[in-house]
């Protein structure tokens, strides 16, 4: 046997073919699983138990690290980690019930909704919905914009306090303090963990888009902080917007416009800094370094953004970014007939 992984629930029987290459996790798996677990756990235990959800997700990730380091990655790592997290959450609730006897109703509800044995949620719709609910929580108007970004990075994107502090050139203590205040505010405000409907949806969606845009800009500002981490903030903003447009509630022209804007802008990432780390003006950038696959994705979303009659700031900025991206050289940029003031 190449590697014993009998501790994993989905592992093959002992004696499995030793010639199979060892399983590797996709990039950022632990980080994104943290966000996914938060969504699934909060749906079960309620947003007022955010701290419990965090503790449980953390513990599940640590157990995965320990077991997978020594035993190898299981065939379905997401299912493995979900099952561990659900068991931990159930134990925590049983313990709480014995300690306080106050939440028996929740425990009953919780045990009814627990995924049964092997059929652990690998349900993409559910994951997407949980992520969207979390986005609406993170961008709630009762939370200040900078606190929204920290909350989203921590809860939704699985960044550690240390990483957020490095990205923002802040101290871990300051980020932790702000995060604690935000959590208290969420608990006090009793925010609903759902996707807004009807006439609530429009303004709340604007809030989500604004928060994603803010997150992207925080990453795009190359002035300060860990550059690699800041680029990852931009990637996270794109990931969240991609989840958003894949959901009927978020599939609006302005969501596509924002996503197009971010894709087209990040396509130029690798060319905007010279060998000395100084910023290069657009005219001086090596356009062959621009990421064509990101440009193509961006242009596709720009087409989707043109459906309907909406024209938002995201549309205009994405349009300008597209002019740059489709020009072979700065001098041949097609500004279009109505864009004289933009030059």
């Amino acid at each position: 046997m190449a590697r014993a992984d009998s501790a994993a629930p989905t592992a093959d029987a002992p004696g499995a073919t030793p010639t199979l290459p060892p399983l590797q996790l996709v990039e950022h798996f632990f980080r994104h699983e943290t966000g996914r677990l938060h969504g699934a756990l909060i749906r079960l235990v309620g947003i007022h138990n955010l701290a419990l959800a965090e503790d449980v997700a953390q513990e599940a990730l640590l157990r995965a690290l320990r077991t997978w380091s020594m035993g190898g990655v299981p065939a379905n790592p997401s299912a493995w980690i979900t099952r561990v997290a659900m068991n931990l959450a159930r134990d925590a609730f049983r313990h709480q019930r014995m300690a306080t006897t106050k939440e028996p109703a929740i425990v009953t509800h919780f045990e009814q909704t627990l995924p049964t044995s092997a059929a652990v949620a690998d349900n993409n719709t559910e994951i997407r919905d949980d992520a969207l609910r979390l986005m609406f929580i993170c961008s709630h108007p009762s939370i200040a914009p900078d606190a929204q970004v920290v909350l989203a990075l921590k809860v939704l994107c699985g960044f550690s306090t240390g990483e957020i502090a490095r990205a923002f050139l802040s101290s871990e203590a300051a980020i932790e303090k702000q995060f604690t205040r935000t959590k208290q505010r969420i608990q006090a405000a009793n925010l609903p963990f759902d996707i807004p409907e009807g006439e609530d949806l429009g303004p709340r969606l604007d809030g989500v888009l604004a928060a994603i845009y803010f997150l992207f800009n925080e990453g795009y500002k190359a002035s300060a902080g860990d550059r690699l981490l800041r680029e990852e903030l931009c990637q996270e903003a794109i990931r969240l917007a991609s989840l958003l447009v894949a959901h009927p509630a978020g599939d609006t022209p302005r969501s596509h416009a924002l996503l197009a804007l971010m894709l087209l802008t990040s396509a130029r990432f690798s060319s905007r800094i010279d060998e000395d780390g100084d910023l290069l003006r657009l005219d001086d950038q090596d356009r062959s370094k621009w990421d064509q696959s990101l440009i193509e994705r961006g242009l596709l979303h720009l087409v989707a953004a043109a459906q309907g009659h909406e024209l938002t700031a995201y549309h205009v900025q994405a349009g300008i970014a597209a002019c740059h991206c489709t020009a072979a050289a700065a001098a041949s940029t097609d500004w279009g007939p109505d864009s004289a003031p933009l030059r």
């Binding site: 699983e33 943290t34 640590l62 320990r66 380091s69 550690s160």
Partner: peptide, 23 residues
């Protein structure tokens, strides 16, 4: 001395990297 408490202060990325190096 390989318990979960040893790794609790690592970020998710650092944990994943450690796991990959270990494997």
């Amino acid at each position: 001395n390989s318990g979960p408490e040893n790794y609790q202060y690592l970020s998710p990325e650092q944990r994943q990297q450690l796991m990959a190096r270990w494997n």
